[in-house]
Lab assay of single mutants.
Amino acid sequence: HHHHHGSGALAALHAEGPLAGLPVTRSDARVLIFNEWEERKKSDPWLRLDMSDKAIFRRYPHLR
């Protein structure tokens, strides 16, 4: 159930192989992290948004 927010940013994801479903670039990863943060913020208003490279690598090590 993907609803768009204002920016309408869509992340490019790997379609197949071992990385299927994972973001292709760091900016794609940022979109995913932001979208998930927006969702989680509803139940956790104090949740901090962390889109640093460090956060991205921790989450998606293949982007190193």
Rank of each mutant, 00 (worst) to 15 (best):
L49R: 02
R59E: 07
A9S: 15
E38I: 10
W46L: 14
I56W: 00
Y60D: 00
W37L: 02
A15R: 12
D28S: 06
L22S: 03
S43N: 13
H3R: 03
L32W: 04
P45K: 05
E38W: 15
H1N: 11
D53C: 06
I56Y: 01
I56L: 06
S7Y: 14
M51Y: 06
E16R: 07
H14V: 05
V24K: 13
G17I: 02
D28Q: 02
I33V: 07
V24R: 09
L63I: 04
H2C: 08
K54S: 13
Y60V: 00
A20K: 15
P61I: 02
H5Q: 14
R26N: 10
R26A: 14
L47S: 11
A9L: 09
Y60P: 00
R30V: 07
Y60S: 00
R64P: 05
F57W: 05
L19H: 06
R48N: 10
P23A: 01
P23Y: 00
G17P: 06
P23M: 01
L47V: 14
S7E: 09
S7T: 15
E39R: 10
M51I: 15
D28F: 04
A55S: 07
H14S: 02
H2L: 09
K54Y: 08
V31A: 08
A20R: 14
F34N: 04
E39I: 11
S52G: 04
R64D: 10
H5N: 13
S27F: 09
L63D: 00
P45Y: 03
G21W: 01
S52R: 06
R58D: 15
L47H: 12
K54I: 10
W37M: 02
G6K: 09
K42P: 07
I56C: 03
R40K: 08
H62A: 12
P18E: 08
G6I: 15
H5W: 15
G8P: 10
N35K: 15
Y60N: 00
A29W: 00
G6Y: 07
A9G: 11
L22N: 04
N35I: 13
K42L: 10
A29P: 00
I33N: 00
H62F: 03
S52N: 03
Y60G: 00
G17E: 03
R26K: 15
T25K: 06
F57M: 13
W46D: 14
S7M: 14
P61V: 03
D50C: 06
F34S: 05
A29L: 00
D28C: 06
L49V: 07
P23V: 01
L49F: 06
E36S: 06
E38R: 15
K42T: 07
H5G: 07
A55Y: 08
E36V: 04
H4C: 11
K41I: 15
G8K: 06
D44P: 04
P23D: 00
L47T: 15
R48E: 10
A15M: 15
S7H: 11
A11P: 12
D53F: 15
H1I: 13
P23I: 01
E38N: 13
A20N: 07
H2E: 10
V24A: 05
H4P: 12
E16K: 08
S27H: 11
L10I: 15
H1G: 13
L13F: 09
G17D: 04
R64A: 14
V31Y: 10
R64C: 08
R48W: 09
P18Y: 07
S27Q: 15
R64V: 07
F34E: 04
H1Q: 11
P18Q: 06
A15S: 14
D44R: 06
W37P: 01
Y60F: 11
L47D: 06
A12M: 15
L22I: 03
S52M: 01
S27T: 09
I33S: 01
M51Q: 07
W37C: 01
L22H: 04
H5M: 14
R26D: 07
K54T: 14
H5I: 15
G8A: 13
F34R: 10
E38A: 13
L49D: 01
G8F: 11
A29S: 01
T25H: 05
A9D: 13
A9C: 09
P23L: 00
S52K: 06
A15I: 14
L10R: 08
V24H: 04
L22R: 02
R59S: 07
E36A: 07
H3K: 10
L22Y: 06
P23R: 00
K41G: 05
S27N: 14
A29K: 01
A29H: 00
I33K: 01
H62Y: 10
